[in-house]
Each structure stands twice: as structure tokens, then as C-alpha cells.
Amino acid sequence: MLNLIDTLLQGVMLGGQYALMAVGLSLAFGVMRLVNVAHGDFIVLAAYLALICMTTLGLHPLAALIVVVPVMAIVGYGVQRLLLNRAVGRDIMPALLITFGLSVIIQNGLLEVFSADSRRLDAGGLTAAGLRLGDGLAVGWFPLITFGLAVAVIAGLEALFARSALGRAFRAVSDDQEIVQLMGYDNRHLYALAMALAFAVMAVAGVLFGIGTVFDPAFGPPQLLFAFEAVIIGGMGSLWGTLAGGVILGLAQAIGFRVDPGWGILFGHAVFLLILAVQPRGLIPKTRDA
């Protein structure tokens, strides 16, 4: 019984991490109808940027966020403005293949610079300390922080989308990129801002990921797949759906790992495929077809 609760708790915490990773993907799709195949690689890139900050500036990984978040936001703005805006359109192939190319470039670039060695962002005692919930049951502070941050980021973005002028413009450009220009908005700038925002969240996700797990240049693609699964399971109706999707994926993997360590990831994929089979529009589907 205690084992079961522990597994579920771990699954939920893992889900928070996946949700945080998925937010950027969900955002880019929501605004630009674009799937960034290099999503996971940019997350890993953020972790390496934090590593550079730590070794050159001697910063704590969480303090490195002050540098990594704005840098990644600028990278996101540039990627959208210089590359992806030229490929936005009815044909999905150019954007898909451009980000696929970026994914390969980032992976191999990191390999050249940092080698294939595994790294970890050392956060001191942060990853060791935990909160005791009862006899034999504890949850680490770090996963709790990650989960809390995922909830906070999602709540913040939902508020931005629902209430601010920028959020309104994001929704409008997603609805009709031609008419929004007549409202005085440069759609290319709006897309780039949305991507910058997505990359800022990816930077946070990347740094937390690097603190919690060892990583190497090849770690990007799995993160893309997990983020993608969280988004699809959630149903793209809202970012809260993405959180739910992340938690379901995390639970599936945690239960899978408990059954047999080799089956954890596969369990996650299986749940994704199952939901695709029975509820292809996800758990919280978008009520209106754009």
C-alpha cells in the first residue's frame, strides 16, 4: 500500500516535470500551429547554457536562470523571425523539416563542444533534501519545487492569454493571421514573441531537468517525445490540459518502472497510444475547431 502511494506520488512529480517541458511545445502549436521538432534539443541546450554559467560565473544553477532564460528567449525570437516565419503556411513540411534540421545541428554541435559525457547541474543540497509525509513516505523538495513551478508557469500563462492585450493578440493571430495585421499587429513579430515566451519556459524546464537528471547531447529527442505525449494526452484545450497530460504520462511511467524497470518508458508510450485510440482529441479537447 505504502509502495503504491509512493509510486503514484513519484509519478505525479514526474508529471510536473513533463508538463513544464510540454508548455513551450503547446504554446508554439497553439499560436503558430507549428511543431518544433528541436524542442527537446533546445531544452538540453538550455541545460548546457546553465552549465556554462556555473563554470564561468560560479553561479548556482537556479541563479543561472537569470542568464539562461533571457538568452533562450532571444534565441527563440531569432529562430522564429529568421527561420520559421519564412516557413509558416498551409504546408507543414518546411517548418517540420527545418526544426528537424535544427535538432540534428544542436545535437552534433553540443557533441563537438561538450563531448558525449554525461553532465549534471550540481544544486548542492537541494536535490537531497525531502519532505517527510509519514512512515517511510517522503517526497523530495526538488520535485515539489518543479511541480509547483509548472503549476505557477501554467497559471501565469493562462492569465496572460486570458487577460492581457498581448495574450489577446496571440489568440487573434492564431485565429486569423491576416486580419490581425489590420488591427495594427505585425504577425511575424507576434509569432516571434510567442516563440520567445515558449523558449523562456523551455529554459526553466531545461535547467530544472539538468538539476534533476544526468544529461548528454543525445537527451533532446526523448524530451520532445514526452512533451508531445503530454500535449496530445491533454488535448490542446488549455495548458491545464497539458499539465493533466504530463501527470498521466508521469503516472504511467512510474507504474511501469515499478512493474519492471525496462518497461517504464514503454508504459508511457502505451498509455499515449491507448488514449490516441479511444480519445484521439485528448482529455480536454478544444471545443472549437480552428
Partner: peptide, 13 residues
């Protein structure tokens, strides 16, 4: 691989 990726992006653009 980096050269190939850049070339593919260039073609798509």
C-alpha cells in the same frame, strides 16, 4: 551532420 542539417534547412528556406 551539421553541414547536412544546415544544407537541408537552406533548401527548405
Amino acid at each position: 551532420m551539421i553541414a547536412f542539417g544546415a544544407l537541408a534547412i537552406l533548401v527548405m528556406l
